[in-house]
Design a protein around this nucleic acid. Structure first.
Lengths: 205, 205, 205, 205
DNA sequence: CATGAATGAGCGTTCATTCAT
DNA sequence: AATGAATGAACGCTCATTCAT
């Protein structure tokens, strides 16, 4: 058993490597076999370790899943921060959100499929709340962005909450949609999806 | 004891009634306790029958879930066929799809929540494919409708596949979104969502 | 899984029989292998059933142990109610408590050894409290009896709480002590132990 | 790495210190968390060492527990050897045994609680026998003392084995009984308990 | 000497499914 | 047609012990 719940700082090199390896194996297992089949035994088999070692490093399955989500979201957030070019306006911002997300789904399909699996699974209550808090934060940010765009007259006067629902739903299902298509169409797919929401937001035609 | 899963035709009246009862209990269990907690024992308890009877009538859990989805989709399809008034055009048709679906989510929350639960769960492969085939049919219908609308010049020239992805995603998440809001806002919610996709499709502003 | 937590009344004949069988097997396992080795697998092996069946009938291990204690204590209490002859005084009452208990240990060694094992084990908190409440009740009864005996001048003025501690300790260890001796000495053992506490209580010599 | 469990003689200074440190941590863990929760990981955490080091120094858990009991009993025996004043007779000797033990329970509660925990736990057979042998030795000594007291006419003619059972039981449960009471009553408690057994032994009143 | 990562058996519990009644 | 007792595999988790470093 892991004697303490060390914070990131004071983990040994080996421990860090093992944790990464286990998180990676968990992502693969979840993405390829589904959340409900991603048991410690199966995850451990993928990592060629014993199941007990997962508990040793993560204490509970809840912790492991939390780490899986954290790992994926950290990389996703980094990717979503967008390119270095300054925004040319709210429509440009909206387009970048969509294309950024879809492009990431295309380039990291396993992570994003695993993310979808986990988020739609029956999680322990504490984790459920953790996820809900994260979702709320993301929603609030987007609602704020849309409202601001309306104030600047770039967006038509829709209900930002409803728009956010639709956009989040589309982005959440993106991993699946993208997976159905050949890689060479992913760029076009991202542009089309961005067009759709830009159109819906501006009504400019 | 007699192996079952007869085809619809040669089922006795009693057998049909039992099957309906079990399907109803399963929907309630899935909606209220989540798919992963909807075990035969819990479903049977809700129907005040023994767990063995479920297997007797459905042979496997997979069959029961198939029936649950069939039951919900049949009712949903019937409701979605739209009112008796003739369509006033493709935009009107699109709006009716959205409002019809969202309104149904508002009026039959349990069924739709259960549907969401099942569709996002890790189903056995055979059932997964069954669902996928059903999805494909629905998608094809919508894609056809959108293409037709473009041919008539009512819709702008977006990619109908991408549009369908976004619309299906939004409709799939509707049960949750609707559940977050007070009942008196459901009508407005449906209209806002319809506006959003009408705008995206027509680009008329 | 056992659909409900039926009360004693409405259990089927078969269920009652199984529960008794399991409780009996659990007592044997605890007495012969010790509490910590009395796992569901071992108990089930003694009863020639599958481990899952224990959970089916008792839901949790805590419930099973509670039932084990209840079963033993019910029989012990019945045996301790004493013979039909009226008490001849407080000393006689005290002697009967001791001889009754020791005699029961001699005639039902397995039950009493199991009881000792369970009561001295690390139980789940809820069960621990259940046991503590039972203990307190027994102690209070004995303290009351001793105090009354002092009021009537039959007992010398010792501290009844301390006396109760010593008596309970001696009775609790009786299963072990009795087990160390051949059966033909058990009667004499009970009388000697009764003498000891009678002497300590009366100081009469 | 080198197999260990050397005999006392050829242990280095450091090794002795480590063993003492581990034994102390084990006693604290057992007393505060219960025997069944006193795993190597928890004991090691208290000693701020790694769990592997315990095995290194003691080879098996059984050895560690053996050492724990030896450590406690050695200190207890030293304390029980009684004060420097010469015994004033057998009753005085008996009283000193009781008050000495109870007083030690009051002044070293952790050790004595740990001892109780260990002795009432399900130990490996070999250790069980080790403990039994130790018990037998203590019992024999007490039986001899009581018999001698009877020969000198100071004690009434009870069965010394039975008396020893009762006295050992009372002393074994003393840690718990004492812990239930406020510190200022411990002296009176010891005296009351001594009175009880003196009375039972002499019958003088 | 000491670490702590790693193992593998065992734990209580859940569950779809079977089957004697 | 229906019951509900029974199974056995799988689950997350704990632990004494091992061993490469």
């Amino acid at each position: 058993m892991q004697p303490v719940d060390r914070t990131d700082g004071d983990r040994s090199f080996i421990e860090d490597a093992r944790r990464r390896q286990i998180v990676t194996a968990a992502i693969a297992a979840i993405a390829e076999e589904g959340y409900s089949r991603a048991s410690f035994v199966r995850i451990a088999a993928r990592a060629s370790i014993s199941p007990g070692l997962i508990t040793y490093h993560f204490k509970t399955k809840e912790n492991l899943i939390r780490e899986v989500l954290g790992h994926i979201d950290a990389r996703l957030d980094r990717a979503m921060e967008g390119g270095p070019e300054p925004l040319e306006g709210f429509e440009d911002g909206l387009r970048r959100i969509v294309t950024g997300h879809v492009t990431y789904c295309a380039s990291h399909p396993q992570e994003m499929v695993a993310r979808r699996e986990v988020l739609s699974a029956a999680l322990p209550p504490a984790l459920q709340e953790h996820v809900a808090r994260g979702n709320e934060a993301g929603r609030a940010e987007l609602v704020g962005f849309l409202t601001e765009g309306q104030r600047h007259g770039e967006f038509r006067p829709f209900d930002p909450e409803v728009f956010t629902d639709a956009l989040f739903a589309a982005l959440s299902s993106a991993p699946r949609s993208v997976a159905r298509r050949p890689a060479e169409e992913h760029g076009a797919y991202a542009r089309e999806m961005a067009d759709l929401f830009a159109e819906a937001a501006t009504g400019r035609g």
